[in-house]
């Protein structure tokens, strides 16, 4: 982070960068490094035993599987919603556009109890699903519903600006060359949207894997069945098993860092593919 030796006209470089680095270290870097240091207290064998215990592995499967599924659902419907918001006019559009951000603004605990109320056996939606033999609340399906809710804005908001910037001329050119609507979507529009779609997918997935508040109310939290990884950390903490909690946290952090790198790469790709010129 050493400053290049250049002549600076504007003031305040040293003080602002200094404060930025100090604050970043105090609030984020030092605390996060505590996780890794704490993990080293465990031997490799012990670490492996903790993170590969059947109950813990079951939580990975559940968390990762459902997060992938939720992100996929959000990719499909998020694209459709963004498409409708950009390309069609319909009554109430501004309201819909504004409310898309609700999952960003609504506290997760509130979302959790509201979804539980909706999907419980006597809830507005649950009462129609129950006779069909579909139970959502307190089942893994409930977790999926919560993860779809909290991940919904990501795809919409990454795809929407790209769709807005899309030149109508591209589609007109493709049409004048004889392409049908579906072909244009498949060969012209989708390749342009792809990096943004993947970014939105990755963001939604990353958020879903770490989500806690909205899930625990609707999940049922039954070991081996409907227990998510973040809950596992809390459970270990409540048993004062700090090392165990930290080991699982390390696994999750590694995944987070990987995702962060992937997302950064995807965003660079997005701006490359949609930028006017390089």
């Amino acid at each position: 982070m050493a400053a290049a030796k250049t002549f600076r006209v504007l003031p305040g470089f040293n003080i602002t960068l200094g404060f930025t680095l100090a604050y970043l270290s105090l609030i984020v870097l030092i605390p996060l490094s505590a996780v890794f240091l704490k993990t080293t207290e465990l031997g490799l064998d012990q670490f492996w035993n903790v993170v590969s215990a059947p109950r813990v592995v079951a939580t990975y499967k559940l968390s990762f599987g459902l997060s992938l599924l939720a992100a996929a659902i959000n990719t499909v419907f998020g694209l459709m919603l963004a498409w409708a918001l950009v390309r069609y006019s319909f009554p109430g559009k501004r309201l819909v556009d504004a409310l898309v951000d609700l999952p960003f603004a609504l506290p997760t605990a509130v979302a959790g109890i509201a979804l539980t109320a909706l999907y419980a056996k006597n809830g507005w939606i649950g009462q129609y699903l129950d006779p069909l033999g579909i139970q959502v609340a307190f089942k893994p399906l409930g977790i999926l519903v919560a993860l779809v809710f909290i991940g919904l804005p990501f795809v919409v908001r990454t795809v929407q600006p790209i769709l807005e910037d899309l030149d109508t001329e591209l589609e007109e050119a493709a049409t004048s060359l004889g392409a049908r609507r579906w072909q244009i979507f498949r060969h012209v529009i989708l390749p342009i949207l792809l990096p943004a779609l993947l970014t939105g997918f990755a963001l939604a997935f990353a958020r879903a894997v770490g989500e806690y508040g909205s899930v625990i109310f609707i999940a049922g939290n039954i070991p081996m069945v409907s227990e998510i990884t973040p809950l596992m950390i809390i459970t270990k903490l409540e048993q004062y098993d700090y090392a165990g909690a930290t080991a699982i946290a390390t696994v999750m952090l590694m995944l987070s860092f990987t995702l962060l790198l992937v997302i950064n790469g995807l965003q660079a790709w997005t701006s490359k593919r949609t930028g006017r010129d390089r």
Binding site: D167, E169, E172, A173, V188, R273
Partner: peptide, 11 residues
């Protein structure tokens, strides 16, 4: 049809 800004497919 040839567009003013060509409308070439960038990808």
């Amino acid at each position: 049809f040839v567009f003013q800004h060509y409308a070439l497919f960038r990808h």
